[in-house]
């Protein structure tokens, strides 16, 4: 369900960019999906396709890049990736439910509330990369 909100936000943004930049056609949009956001890529792409049509954008070619989430502890300096800890954290967040709706899926920036540094346990760590869904670029053809 959360994928719908993300898709709607992206399509609304592209629509606004089309107006502001006087684009006749939006041909391509590049997205980056951080692994921490736990986004179902196929569902997101399907929703982007449906909503692009609903919002009058027509066919937009959506290209998606996956970005691994990386962290660095502010306390001990240790670095780690989401894939190294994902199974354990997801068990804590979702118990036995696979891919459950959870606070980190909704707001990835809340990971500090639910995870500690694997080395020292501190919850004071930086997210170096891959924490969110980002709209990287939009290509189109101008009216003039």
């Amino acid at each position: 369900m959360h994928e719908y909100s993300i898709a709607e936000g992206i399509v609304l943004t592209i629509k606004k960019l089309r107006e502001v930049n006087n684009l006749n056609v939006v041909s391509e949009a590049v997205l980056s999906i951080g692994s921490l956001a736990q986004i179902d890529k196929d569902v997101l792409l399907e929703l982007l396709k449906i909503l692009s049509t609903e919002y009058g954008l027509g066919h937009v070619n959506f290209l998606v890049e996956d970005e691994e989430s990386m962290f660095k502890c502010n306390y001990c300096g240790f670095s780690w990736s989401w894939s190294q800890v994902k199974d354990r954290i997801m068990r804590e967040l979702c118990e036995d439910v696979k891919d459950c709706d959870n606070p980190v899926h909704f707001i990835p920036d809340l990971i500090n509330v639910f995870m500690g540094c694997p080395k020292c346990g501190s919850q004071d760590f930086k997210i170096l990369s891959g924490y969110d869904v980002k709209l990287i670029s939009v290509k189109g053809v101008r009216n003039d």
Binding site: I107, D109, N112, Q123, K126
Partner: peptide
Amino acid sequence: MFVGDRPTPLRGER
């Protein structure tokens, strides 16, 4: 509603 009774150690940008 997202974190319940957990503490929220968040820095500025977060």
